[in-house]
Amino acid sequence: MYIETLGNVGDTATLFSPIINVDGLTEPSVQFYYHLFGANMGDLSVDVYDGTAWQVGLFTSSGPVQTAGSDAFEQAIINLAGYTGDIQVRFVSTRTGVTSGDMAIDDFSVEEAPACAPVALLDTGVLNAMDAEITWQSQGSETTWIVEYGHCRFCSWHIGN
């Protein structure tokens, strides 16, 4: 899916998946790659219909993620633990600016959730001989991470609640 931000502020584009049965999956997940680039990128919301109602905003992003058109796509994983039967996924793009925004979604799948979801939007802040500031966006419900760093005999730290 590719969307160019042309039109009026507030316009939406919506892409629906076919209806997908997840009964064969122990812990289903929605997985896709996204590229959000441009000064007036807009908003992306990924919603899932659980057979009764739309669960809105299971994944959201506002504004640009990539800083150049040539930047790599980011992966998103939405854990659907507890979902059974038929589901449907929708991608909703909402225009927030006049022009200058390109949104692309690629490699969409519904499959078994990974045992250890990778982090998204990994970034660094302060980096010097004594400090390193690292930020990321979780891709599931995890609240604890193991961070390993250093030289040959490095330390391992647990971060979280």
Rank of each mutant, 00 (worst) to 15 (best):
A117D: 06
G63Y: 09
N161M: 03
F154T: 10
D86P: 10
G69V: 03
N128L: 05
Y34R: 15
S17C: 01
Q88R: 15
W136C: 13
T14I: 15
V9N: 11
F91I: 03
A132F: 03
V9Y: 00
S93A: 15
S45Q: 10
F32R: 01
D102L: 12
Q75D: 03
A115H: 01
A104L: 08
V9T: 14
N40V: 01
V92C: 02
G57A: 07
I77A: 10
V126E: 14
D23L: 04
I19H: 08
T52S: 14
S17E: 09
E112C: 04
L6M: 07
R153A: 13
G150C: 06
V48D: 10
E111D: 13
G7F: 03
P28Y: 04
F91M: 02
Q139C: 02
V89L: 04
G160H: 08
V48F: 09
G160T: 11
V126F: 02
G140F: 02
S156K: 14
A72E: 14
A120P: 02
N161Q: 10
Q75A: 09
N128A: 04
I105A: 06
W145A: 13
V65N: 11
S100G: 15
E142K: 05
N8F: 08
R90Y: 07
L58F: 06
F59I: 00
L44Q: 05
G97F: 05
A68E: 11
D50K: 08
F73N: 12
V9W: 05
I77Y: 12
T143Y: 06
N40M: 01
G101P: 12
G82R: 11
D43F: 02
T144S: 05
P18G: 12
F108I: 08
Y83W: 06
L121V: 02
V48R: 13
R153L: 10
T67N: 14
P114M: 01
E148V: 11
C155K: 11
G51A: 06
V46W: 03
M130A: 13
S62A: 13
F154K: 11
V119M: 10
G125K: 11
G69Q: 09
G82I: 01
N79C: 00
A115V: 11
A39G: 07
A117Q: 11
A120H: 01
P114L: 01
Y34I: 07
V119R: 07
L15Y: 13
T52M: 04
F59S: 05
E112L: 08
I78D: 06
L121E: 11
G85R: 09
A68V: 00
A132M: 13
E4N: 11
T12V: 12
W54L: 09
S138T: 14
V65W: 05
S17V: 04
P28E: 10
T12E: 15
Q137K: 12
A104C: 00
Y49T: 04
D71V: 10
E111H: 00
E133R: 09
D71C: 10
S17A: 06
V56Q: 13
D11R: 02
S17I: 04
Q137G: 03
M103K: 11
S17M: 02
A120W: 01
V22C: 07
T60K: 13
A132Q: 07
D107C: 01
M41L: 03
